[in-house]
Design a protein around this nucleic acid. Structure first.
Length: 469
RNA sequence: CGGGAAGUAGCGCAGCUUGGUUAGCGCGCCUGGUUUGGGACCAGGAGGCCGCGGGUUCGAAUCCCGCCUUCCCGACCA
């Protein structure tokens, strides 16, 4: 079963391979304005699955969805000094509308802390109104100099959570909960992507945050990708927007706020975390199509059998599709492999004669046969195994590409094609500058045991360095 | 935004150096037929402001200028 080469091989040119997958799996294409992206139906189906899984988890924490405007008065951003400084270079600003020059320029949201902060200030009166837990699904715009589909686009889709709390401990605990129960749980159990959980060094923090967490994935080429992030915003935005509450004791106090997000970048991460030279590989629990049933020939008995198998699987809760397209068998198979459907059920004349069907896993070149009556059980088992195998494989890849080192020079060297782990004390300051000069950055800080620190002031932290998307 | 490469049919490309009939090829697409267990074959067919704008010229895909877009490498970022 030699796999025909329809893509640039990863080993030949990884960025080219990535683009080929995005194009040939029909995930997305470039829009007419630089940096914009047309997300095609299959790419959007992947995003909808991501949305659905995250949204369920977000709501389980008590957060509620709402929607805030795309347009934000420029003056809002200016109220938080670091925030405006951080985002100014990538803002799209509307200065002309309705046929005339605007009195005050309007910013297209790069993120919504400011406009939501202004609402929070009005909505929160008393400690009884806290915590206030909001989330929105929206598009945002950050003018990108070097766009890449999904990984870095000028307009992208995301979820942004925004919360307000009575004190620092509550805010910190909630951000940590989101990091763990929403993001890490999703990345582990659905996305099958092991990450390094940690906090960002001060240099990489969100503009206006006092602390940012990250989950850094290790892609197949050894580069790191920030998959998700949470921020403790301290009282910075509360101060800027007057987000105050009356305490139990009757005192006016400033809230502590958080924000946290996951973006369409995850689709790019999916491609680069699990794909191979035949295309995308989607973990079963994420896959919009978990099983495709392919009749080997376009003949009534085969089509009927394929339809029956699909019906049984659908009844068992499997997301299944029957391939009813014309064209040669090989062509159709190749297309499903490009799209990364985790399991293919083939129904051919020989199968039918023997009362069985063939199962072909996408993650490994392995074909098995199973009696028609046992298909559902077998498919469920195989999907479970594929999910587990993708996790194990990605974990092994992450660990094999992570190297413990004891000097800045070795760290920079090891980070050229992988992740370097080294004491933060060695790197902080001059070492970080040296690394940055070589396109290597500090991806996150962890405690020595790999757990997530509460702040970068903790002693004896380690840092992970890598090249990053 | 700096350095490099490139824009010709849906995709990949040739043609440009040396301006001149009707702008070609492969894949894909449409029609008909034969096929079908890993990208099938035959025949017929459709599809082009040659990236956009300006200039030179009797005449521009081809020469000149400007702009836009894409890709690679850097600085900024989820």
């Amino acid at each position: 079963m030699a796999t025909p080469s329809v893509l640039t091989p990863q080993s030949e040119d990884f960025p080219r391979w990535y683009q080929d997958v995005v194009a040939k799996a029909e995930l997305a294409e470039n829009g007419p304005v630089r940096g914009t992206m047309v997300v095609r139906p299959y790419g959007y189906a992947l995003w909808e699955r991501i949305q659905s899984e995250l949204d369920t988890r977000i709501k389980a924490t008590g957060a509620q969805n709402a929607y805030f405007p795309l347009f934000i008065p420029e003056s809002y951003l200016a109220r938080e000094a670091e925030h405006v400084e951080g985002f100014s270079p990538e803002l799209a600003v509307v200065t002309f509308a309705g046929g005339e020059e605007l009195a005050e320029p309007i910013v297209v949201r790069p993120t919504s802390e400011t406009i939501i902060g202004e609402c929070m200030a009005r909505w929160i009166q008393s400690y009884r109104d806290l915590p206030l837990l909001l989330n929105q699904w929206a598009n945002v715009v950050r003018w990108e100099l070097r766009p890449r589909l999904f990984l870095r686009s000028t307009e992208f889709l995301w979820q942004e959570g925004h919360t307000a709390h009575v004190n620092e401990a509550d805010a910190r605990a909630f951000a940590a909960r989101i990091h763990r129960e929403v993001y890490d749980d999703f990345l582990t159990n659905v996305f099958a992507t092991p990450t390094y959980l940690g906090i960002k060094p001060p240099s990489e923090r969100f503009p206006g945050a006092v602390n940012s967490t990250t989950a850094e994935g290790v892609m197949l080429d050894g580069k790191a990708l920030q998959m998700v992030t949470t921020h403790e915003l301290g009282q910075n935005f509360a101060r800027a927007f007057g987000i105050t509450f009356q305490s139990e004791a009757g005192q006016a106090e400033l809230c502590y706020t958080t924000s946290w997000g996951a973006t369409t970048r995850l689709v790019g991460g999916l491609v680069m975390a699990h794909g191979d030279d035949a295309g995308l590989i989607v973990p079963p629990r994420l896959a919009p199509i978990q099983v495709v049933v392919v009749a080997v020939r376009d003949e009534p008995p085969l089509n009927e059998a394929a339809g029956e198998v699909a019906r049984a699987l659908r009844d068992a809760g499997v997301r299944v599709e029957v391939d009813t397209s014309r064209g040669s068998f090989g062509r159709r198979v190749t297309n499903w492999e490009l799209k990364g459907v985790p399991l293919r059920v083939e129904v051919g004349p020989r199968d039918l004669a023997e009362g069985r069907v063939s199962l072909v896993r996408r993650d490994v070149s392995e074909k098995t046969t199973v009696a028609v009556g046992a298909v559902t059980r077998a498919v469920l088992d195989v999907l479970t195994e594929v999910q587990a195998h993708l996790w194990r494989r990605a974990l092994a890849h992450r660990d094999a590409n992570t190297h413990d080192v004891t000097s800045v020079a070795d760290a920079i060297d090891a980070a050229k094609d992988g992740v370097a782990r080294v004491a933060w004390d060695l790197v902080e300051g001059e070492g970080e500058r040296l690394a940055n000069a070589q396109a290597v950055s500090v991806r996150c800080l962890q405690r020595a045991d790999g757990s997530v620190p509460e702040s970068s002031d903790e002693r004896d932290l380690v840092c992970l360095l890598a090249r990053a998307y």
